[in-house]
């Protein structure tokens, strides 16, 4: 980070380090320093988010196509921007008691079409193709690979059995098939837990490294 070495960065680095420390202080107890930094972060990121959305959405998708378009804008193209804009503006009626219901219309549009486009591709991606790859031709596989595929199959069936017939059926009694499902789930959750620990630690490592960079740059060591 060459920017850290620029002139006048010393004081900025100290401020940033103090802010970061005030965030870390939350690990012991909630305090005013943390609250201040949290609110500062919320304000800055909302401001930044606003600028990005304003630029990418409002300027590039609405303003420029309407007023600075290089090609010839026909009626159809103009309407294709104006109509969704009007629908979008209806969102802001939600603050009025009298016209608040109008905000439901753009929401209905996004919800309905969003739900519609969801169905087909999801079935194909997460059901058809996943089932396809669970059913394999054993003729060219080694014994170990066949064993693994059978385990995968057993895990799928028993896990689904557990959720469909034990959890939903509200049965409390011990069930052999469901127990196998639970056994596999615990192995899988263990793996997820191991990975989660890994991910969380990485985040802290990065922060410690950021401290190191900033402290080193204050003392001109970077």
């Amino acid at each position: 980070m060459s920017i850290l070495r620029e002139k006048g960065m010393g004081i900025i680095n100290i401020i940033v380090i103090l802010l970061m420390l005030s965030v870390l202080s939350f690990v012991f107890k909630d305090n005013h320093f943390f609250k201040f930094t949290e609110r500062l972060l919320v304000g800055v990121s909302a401001g930044y988010g606003f600028l990005i959305i304003f630029n990418a959405g409002f300027i590039k998708k609405i303003w420029i196509p309407l007023f600075y378009s290089t090609g010839t804008n026909n009626f159809f193209q103009v309407m294709n921007i104006i109509l969704p804009c009007l629908l979008g503006l209806l969102f802001f009626t939600s603050f009025s008691k009298k016209y608040g219901f109008l905000a439901k219309y753009p929401l209905a549009f996004l919800l309905g079409t969003g739900a519609g486009v969801e169905i087909g591709p999801r079935i194909e991606t997460s059901i058809m193709r996943q089932i396809n790859s669970s059913v394999v031709d054993f003729s060219n596989l080694s014994l170990f690979e066949i064993f693994n595929y059978i385990i995968i199959l057993i895990a799928i069936v028993t896990t689904m059995y557990y959720f469909l017939f034990i959890v939903r059926g509200n049965k409390k009694r011990e069930n052999f098939i469901a127990n196998i499902g639970i056994f596999f789930m615990m192995i899988g959750f263990g793996a997820s837990f191991g990975y989660t620990i890994m991910g969380r630690l990485s985040l802290l490592i990065e922060v410690v490294d950021m401290f190191r960079e900033r402290i080193f740059s204050i003392f001109g060591l970077l």
Binding site: K61, L83, P84, L87, F92, L110, T113, G114
Partner: peptide
């Protein structure tokens, strides 16, 4: 295309 424009307003909201 419409959804992109409408979402802009949803984000601003």
């Amino acid at each position: 295309d419409w959804s992109i424009v409408i979402s802009t307003f949803a984000l601003l909201l």
